[in-house]
């Protein structure tokens, strides 16, 4: 018994070491280095700027900067818009496509396509649609006599333009999760509810939704983390503009790090962002536990 266990443990290690090494090189070491950087002044473009320890100065600068607060607000605003629409649309389409009808598998697969496209390409696709004057979207609007919408060049529209692109890409994710969750439910409670005479809507609301709620929470959680990191689409479509209308947290970190080359401030901002995500995770697991206790 003891012999087997030690041997197992050795084999265990042999399999584990490469994974740990990769994890260390690609995640842990960079993270430690970023942590180190966040307490330093480090300008990549300007070696003549002193590279010194600055204590909490980078963090203080970020947390007291109205710019950073603004990006947080924009980030959360986008998150609320995209998540709520993705939830409603994704669950709606998910319920429709969960019907066992002929051809539905094909429909589901087609609907998944946006999700499989790289976000940069998604950005470019929508750039063609939104492009001022020459974009397809305004062209189609002009066919029905609607005047051109300054999709990505207006401070009021830009955030919606980005939200629409993100919603287009990620609604299928929610849809797929919802359809899978619905498929995993046993059909009898529905039949019981039908016999009892509850309407489809009541059944959906009182039987389906509560049962797939844990899945929905997981989906929303994953989307929330992604929304928090949203970058590619914005980078392609607006680069944070016009003005600072679509300046999200990732853009802030990018600008600090790769426009101003203030790697220390960028690193500190990344850590603040990480902290927010951690709070988000904690909140999520709490609420997930709560919803699972009830089942």
């Amino acid at each position: 018994m003891a012999y087997g266990r030690t041997r197992n443990r050795k084999i265990f290690l042999i399999f584990l070491v490469p994974a740990i090494a990769v994890l260390f090189l690609t995640t842990i070491y960079p993270m430690i280095y970023a942590g180190y950087l966040s307490f330093r002044s480090y300008d990549l473009a300007k070696p003549f700027v002193p590279r010194v320890f600055v204590g909490w100065a980078n963090y203080r600068e970020i947390l007291t900067s109205s710019e950073f607060m603004h990006t947080l607000i924009v980030t959360f605003k986008l998150m609320v818009i995209t998540l709520s629409v993705q939830l409603v649309l994704g669950v709606g389409i998910g319920v429709l496509t969960a019907q066992r009808l002929p051809g539905m598998a094909l429909v589901r697969t087609l609907l998944l396509i946006p999700m499989m496209i790289s976000p940069v390409i998604v950005g470019l696709i929508w750039l063609f649609l939104y492009f001022p004057e020459l974009g397809y979207l305004n062209y189609f609007l002009s066919l029905v006599s609607i005047s051109a919408v300054p999709w990505i060049t207006s401070t009021t529209w830009a955030i919606w333009a980005i939200a629409i692109a993100d919603i287009w890409q990620w609604t299928p994710f929610v849809m797929m999760g919802t359809a899978a969750a619905i498929h995993s439910l046993s059909p009898e409670p529905y039949e019981a509810a039908m016999i009892d005479g509850n309407s489809r809507w009541q059944i959906f609301w009182h039987v389906t939704i509560p049962q797939i709620k844990p899945v929905l929470i997981s989906l929303m959680f994953l989307r929330a983390i992604d929304a928090f990191k949203l970058y590619d689409i914005i980078f392609v479509l607006t680069k944070g503009g016009p003005g600072d209308a679509t300046e999200v947290l990732s853009m802030f970190i990018y600008r600090q790090s790769f426009t101003f080359w203030r790697m220390g401030v960028g690193a500190a901002a990344s850590f603040v962002s990480l902290a927010i995500v951690v709070v988000l995770i904690t909140f999520f697991f709490k609420s997930l536990n709560r919803s699972q206790e009830r089942i």
Binding site: E188, P189, E191, A192, M194, I195, D196, G197, N198, H206
Partner: peptide
């Protein structure tokens, strides 16, 4: 089903 004046009990209970 709801208009047939019936109630049904299922093999796996079908409880919510």
């Amino acid at each position: 089903p709801k208009d047939r004046g019936i109630a049904m009990v299922f093999q796996n209970y079908a409880l919510y």
